[in-house]
Amino acid sequence: MNINVIEFKNVTKTYKLFKNDKMRLISTLFKIKNYKEKHAVNNVSFNIKKGESVAIFGRNGAGKSTILKMITEVCYPTDGEISVKGRVSALLELTSGFDPEFTGRENIYLKGQLLGLKNNEIKELEQEIIDFAEIEEYIDQPIRTYSSGMKTRLGFSINVNIKPEILIVDEALSVGDENFRKKCSKKVNEIIKNEGVTLLFVTHSVGMAAEFCKRGMVMETGKIVFDGNIEDAIKRYQATSK
């Protein structure tokens, strides 16, 4: 029986909205509630099993990105419980964590360590990462000399080649030129099918969601309003987006 690798139980994420920094300071010093509250995620519960591929749909501000940030511990819930089991690789801000003064090769080791790998594990994956990113000629040059496209390709390559157990994608498959995008899509498909990776895919592209995912969730104003097979999820999302 498959185990749950991601569990959300009655999760809420609330942000405090102040008129200005002065109001924020007054609230902090005197414990005065002089702000409005915004529930980015409101009492959400769901489970994702090992090996599942799940798309999350929703208009801007629906709460999709906040869900991803809580899974990757960029932010934490105000209420509720979250459980994540397994190595998470997030294709979100692909160039975050790079040191501009380090070479591409040194940054492979830096990001690999940040993602929980040991140096000997990174060494085994190093050439595969370089080859996929198509930057062999520049790998020993400082990252600050790279174009934005080169940095993005390297970031994507590191994240998909570190043998993740949970892969989180947020429109990252649109990186690079058309040939590289096809290469990225093929790679994601391979690791889903051949390595049993759990995929959580946030996108506005129903075509890509149908290609990668079998289950879909639709979010509106911080709540999950639909959770079922991908075809029905797409219909629900398209109906609410008109």
Results as ranks from 00 to 15, higher is better:
Gly86Phe: 06
Thr221Leu: 05
Arg59Val: 04
Lys111Cys: 09
Ser65Pro: 11
Phe102Asp: 08
Thr72Ile: 00
Ala210Leu: 07
Leu125Glu: 15
Thr66Gly: 10
Gly155Cys: 09
Glu126Ile: 10
Gly196Tyr: 07
Ala133Phe: 06
Phe18Gly: 14
Ala239Arg: 10
Lys186Leu: 05
Ala233His: 08
Glu81Lys: 14
Thr145Met: 13
Arg59Gln: 14
Val225Met: 02
Leu154Arg: 12
Lys242Leu: 11
Arg181Met: 08
Ile56Val: 14
Pro142Trp: 09
Asn159Arg: 12
Leu199Thr: 01
Ile158His: 08
Met217Phe: 07
Leu92Ser: 08
Leu110Lys: 08
Lys22Gly: 01
Leu25Glu: 15
Asn161Arg: 03
Ala233Lys: 04
Asn4Trp: 00
Thr72Val: 04
Gly207Arg: 04
Lys182Asn: 15
Leu167Gly: 03
Glu101Met: 06
Thr28Pro: 00
Gly176Cys: 12
Lys36Cys: 03
Glu195Val: 00
Glu137Gln: 15
Phe18Tyr: 15
Pro77Ala: 03
Ile6Ser: 09
Val175Ala: 15
Ile234Thr: 02
Leu199Asp: 00
Thr152Glu: 14
Ser157His: 11
Lys85Asn: 14
Glu137Trp: 06
Leu29Lys: 08
Arg236Ala: 01
Thr72Cys: 05
Glu73Gln: 15
Arg24Met: 10
Gln113Asp: 12
Tyr146Glu: 13
Ser205Glu: 13
Leu117Trp: 03
Gly51Thr: 13
Ile234His: 03
Tyr109Gln: 07
Arg236Tyr: 05
Asn47Cys: 09
Ala55Gly: 13
Ser185Met: 12
Lys19Phe: 00
Glu121His: 10
Gly228Val: 08
Asp21Val: 02
Ile166Pro: 09
Arg181His: 01
Glu126Asn: 12
Glu52Arg: 05
Asp21Met: 05
Lys33Arg: 15
Ala239Leu: 13
Glu73Ala: 12
Arg105His: 11
Ile130Ala: 10
Ile192Thr: 00
Glu101Trp: 00
Cys213Met: 05
Lys49His: 13
His204Arg: 07
